[in-house]
Computed example of a mutant assay.
Amino acid sequence: MNASLWQVVIGHPLFALALTLAAYQIAILVYQRSGWLVLQPVMVSMLLVVGVLLLCGVEYSTYRIGAEPIAWLLGPATVALAVPLQHNIKRIRQLFWPIIVTVLAGGALSVVLTLVIGWLLGADWAVLMSLAPKSVTMPIAMPVADQIGGIASLAAVMVMLTGVIGTALGPLLLRWAKVDHPAARGLSYGMNAHAIGTAHALQEGEECGAFAALAMSLLGIATALLMPLLLAA
């Protein structure tokens, strides 16, 4: 392929869209063939997209505009999580107070341990505040981090790493701890690996996915409301 034709290809409006879809399909194939939980499709596809953009000299802003149709689907995909929640609403009502206690206690413990470990390792205030909301989904973590004195872009990276690592290690740790109940597993995925963990939970079963979506939502709301009040005071 000569240089002029290549420039036409990377300059096409559908280049970013095709690149994103192709990278994700390759990542899924690698994940399924390898069976390695560390090779999460989100991480692998991101690395593929970044590598191609660097090789082609395409600016992220240009890629972002081209991939906008995929971003539009995030809203409907999030709303669709209400389907497994509705199907398991009776079970959720039965476990309402245990769910609330688990989300609040687990969320608080996660933040405290993160801040303590970061402080012991010598992280400055901006880094600590970027790490604090790492367990909630990115659209919540970024503005929260910015509000409490962190760095939104660093928070986004930490959220992604938390989701990938949590999803990779979660099944192994839950198996070691002999946690088999779908509700308990779902809460763990949703609290510790947010959207990526919820996607994995849905693969385990609808009940597991429903509780993961619920935990992710409740923890996100609690973080958005309480963390700025507690850490920015």
Rank of each mutant, 00 (worst) to 15 (best):
M1D: 07
M1V: 12
N2G: 14
N2S: 12
A3Q: 14
L5M: 11
L5C: 00
W6C: 03
V8D: 12
I10C: 10
G11I: 09
P13Y: 05
L17P: 07
A18Y: 11
Y24K: 05
Q25D: 08
I26L: 15
A27T: 03
V30M: 08
V30W: 08
V30E: 02
Q32C: 01
R33F: 02
S34F: 04
G35M: 07
L37D: 12
L39P: 04
Q40R: 04
Q40W: 02
P41E: 08
M43A: 15
V44N: 06
V44H: 05
S45A: 15
V49W: 07
V52A: 15
L55K: 11
L55H: 10
C56Q: 15
C56D: 12
G57S: 09
Y63H: 12
I65S: 14
A67Q: 12
P69R: 06
I70M: 13
P76Q: 07
T78M: 06
A80E: 03
L81D: 02
P84R: 04
P84M: 08
L85A: 05
Q86C: 11
K90C: 02
R91I: 03
I92L: 11
I92M: 14
R93W: 13
F96R: 12
W97L: 13
I99V: 15
I100V: 15
T102I: 02
L104S: 13
L104C: 13
L104P: 03
G106W: 09
A108D: 04
A108Q: 04
S110F: 04
S110I: 12
V111W: 08
L115S: 09
V116P: 04
I117M: 13
I117E: 03
G118S: 08
G118Q: 07
W119D: 14
L120H: 08
L121M: 14
L121T: 11
L128C: 09
L131G: 07
A132R: 10
A132N: 08
V144S: 08
Q147H: 11
I148P: 03
G149F: 07
L154N: 00
A155M: 04
A156L: 05
V157S: 06
G163M: 04
V164W: 01
I165C: 06
A168H: 02
L169K: 02
L172A: 13
L173S: 05
L174D: 04
R175H: 14
A177D: 01
K178E: 13
V179M: 09
V179C: 10
D180T: 14
H181I: 00
A183T: 01
A183C: 02
L187T: 00
S188R: 01
Y189A: 11
M191E: 01
N192F: 13
H194T: 07
G197N: 08
G197E: 07
G197L: 07
L202R: 00
Q203F: 00
E204W: 00
G205M: 05
E206N: 06
C208D: 00
G209M: 01
L214C: 06
S217D: 00
L218M: 14
I221V: 15
A222R: 01
T223L: 06
L225T: 08
L225A: 12
P228E: 03
L230Q: 08
A233G: 15
A233C: 10
